[in-house]
Simulated assay, not measured.
Amino acid sequence: MTGKIEARLAELGITLPAAPAPAANYVPFVQSGQQLFVSGQISNSAEGLIKGKLGADMDVEEGALAARFCGLALIAQARAALGDLDRVKRVVKLVGFVNSTAEFIDQPKVVNGCSDLMVEVFGEAGRHARSAVSAASLPLGVAVEIEAIFEIE
């Protein structure tokens, strides 16, 4: 039987990617009590890494799409950790890092790409606290990296 969240993903036409393997000396997620901490997921699509700098060679819409891909990877990591996305009680917090110029001020609009996805998938339980900050550069030159904390059952 398919769970509620898996059914919602299918209804939205969303196929999750495989949970990405860590690129260095860390684990992709850690469960501590009723919280699941998911390591930062970088902007990566089926076509490869989404690289760029907001305010230089990427616009807000491209950045928001990159952030959405980060969100898909976060959900994929949660599924890998929990086995069943229905165990997610709430998206507690997202921390988004946006590779951007010093003049770029729309980091929140970029990270909305991930925030909107969480609400689409988890409904009211997807509403979360959040930080959206600028970074002078990100690993591998990607446009966005986002980490998450989930409350779980």
Rank of each mutant, 00 (worst) to 15 (best):
M1I: 13
M1W: 10
T2L: 15
K4E: 14
E6A: 14
A7K: 15
R8I: 08
L9K: 04
E11H: 11
E11T: 08
I14R: 03
P17M: 11
P17D: 10
P17Q: 10
A18F: 04
A18S: 13
A18C: 08
P20I: 03
P20T: 01
A21V: 06
P22K: 01
A23F: 01
A23N: 02
N25P: 00
N25M: 10
Y26C: 03
F29N: 04
V30A: 14
V30W: 09
V30N: 13
V30R: 15
Q31D: 07
S32K: 15
G33P: 06
Q34E: 15
V38R: 03
S39K: 11
G40V: 01
S43Q: 03
S43I: 00
S43K: 00
N44E: 12
S45T: 11
A46D: 12
L49F: 03
L49I: 00
K53D: 03
G55K: 03
A56P: 01
A56L: 14
A56V: 13
M58W: 01
V60Y: 04
A64T: 05
L65C: 02
A66R: 00
A66S: 09
A67P: 05
A67W: 01
R68Y: 12
R68K: 11
C70T: 03
C70Q: 08
C70N: 09
G71D: 01
G71R: 01
L72D: 04
A73C: 05
L74M: 12
A76Y: 02
A76S: 08
A78C: 00
A78Q: 08
A78G: 08
A81E: 06
D84A: 04
D84W: 05
V88W: 04
R90W: 04
R90V: 04
V91Q: 05
N99G: 01
T101H: 09
A102K: 14
I105P: 04
D106S: 14
Q107P: 09
P108F: 06
V110N: 06
V111W: 02
N112R: 13
G113V: 11
L117V: 05
V119L: 11
V119D: 02
F122S: 00
F122L: 14
F122W: 02
G123Y: 10
G123I: 08
G123M: 12
E124A: 15
A125V: 09
H128M: 15
H128R: 13
S131K: 12
A132C: 14
A132F: 09
V133H: 05
A135F: 03
A136M: 13
S137Q: 14
P139M: 04
G141Q: 04
E145Y: 07
A148Q: 11
F150V: 00
I152E: 06
